[in-house]
Every structure is written in C-alpha cells, then in structure tokens.
Amino acid sequence: MSLNFLEVKDLDKGFGGLKAINNASFNVRRDEIVGLIGPNGAGKTTLLRMILGILKSDSGTIHFKGKKINGKKTWDIINLGIAGTFQNMRPFRHLPIIANVMVACLCPRAMKRGEWVKRIEAKAMDALEFAGISDMAREKASTLSQGDLKRLEVARAVATEPELLLLDEPFGGLSPAETDLMANSIKRLHKGGRFGRLHSEGPAMIIVEHKLKQLMKIVDRIIVLNYGEIIADGAPEEVAKNKKVIESYLGKGDK
C-alpha cells in the first residue's frame, strides 16, 4: 500500500504538436517529500495539473490510494485527499483573505473531517495562522503582496486537510528569510499533528521548485523532468551528480 500511494504510469499529454509529458511514470510513498525539478517548459506544472484533474491526460493512468483518479472531476480528486497550489496565484481578489480559506474549509472533505470543529471561520483562521498571515485576515486579498499570496495559496491547500500536497513553486517570490520560514512550516506540516483546530495528516508532498538549494534541504527524493520525460529519479545527492541533469540545466559542454 505504501508503495502505491500515488502511482503515475505511462502518462502522456500533448498540446497540439508539443509533447508536454511523455511517458512519465513514478511513484510517491505515503511518507515522502518529493521534489520535482526541471528547466522551464519541462512539464512540471502540467504534471501537477493533470494529477489535480484540471487538465485531462491523453493516455496513461494515475492511481491514488489504489483508485484511478484521471478522468475524475477536480473536486472529487480534492475530496479524496489531494490538494494543490497554483504557480500563478489565483486568490479570490474581492473577498477577504479569511473568506478565501473558508471556501476550502467548506469542501465536503474538510467538513466531514471537522470532527468536533463546527466553526469554519475559526478553522480558516488557524490555517491562516499556520501560513503566517492571520493578522491580515479581514483585508481584501487584492491587497496582499506576492509572498503573502503564496502563503495564502498554501493556507488554502492546507485547509482541505490533504494527504498529498502538490506545491507549485512555494518559494517563488519569497525573500531568503521568508523562504526559510516557509520551508520550516512545510517540514512542520509534513510531521503532522494539530495546528489549533486544523488537523494535519502529515501529507506526502510533491514540490515543484527552482530554488534548488532550499529544496534539497527538505526533500527525500528528487524527480527531474526534461521535455516531458523523467530523466532522473533518486536521492538529492545522487541527482545532483547525475550528468544528464547537469546537462539539461546548464547545457552541453563543448568537450
């Protein structure tokens, strides 16, 4: 079971003539943090979006906890226990920040798992507190800075109490100090437990990130994508030495 927590098999996706994902297969265990890296346009975001069901795959299967999830509606997938953030943040700009998170708290999964928690607003507040923007809860989301929008995305994803969290560039636009804070809260979230009224399952994670230095500190395993193909899959140290990976990032040397 632990091996088949998330199982992606022979996944294909093309946009017109462009092959965004080509025959990608990998597994994620229940207790892992997986980093997903690759040059721009490698298909990382496409892969996450296909797991979330926003994009439909051309062929191949995605199994989550033994259930096939590709072809299902996005909300069904979220309610099975996957949550994701967007690379380009998509808050509800005219709603207060707390209402942004309350939407996620109102999904059937969070409502059912609320146990003794009936107060949705209080729970949303705890999710904001976890992300570190609870002091601005009543402001409109349009007033937030880039870094805070990232945190809002994380708070919104965490509020559905996922078992698998897909983070698309969680450190993007954050200063080094903020990056460390975010990395710490991600680690804390992965350990699980309660954050006030919010319950964390200790989710497995897939993190797409370009800031490799910080990423290496928190992940257990790294998958490298290039032109839609997985070119490396292994522990951070191994991947860092892999010739193909260095080539794809830096280009081929002359000699």
Binding site: K73, N79, F86, H94, L106, C107, P108
Partner: peptide, 16 residues
C-alpha cells in the same frame, strides 16, 4: 462569490 472570482480555484479547493 468565489465562483464569480475564479472558478478553477474554487474547484481546486474541493467544492463542486
């Protein structure tokens, strides 16, 4: 209100 702002984001929050 959230559906009016951004429907995809509401879906990824798990709301039908």
């Amino acid at each position: 209100h959230a559906v009016r702002e951004d429907e995809i984001a509401v879906r990824t929050s798990g709301v039908n």
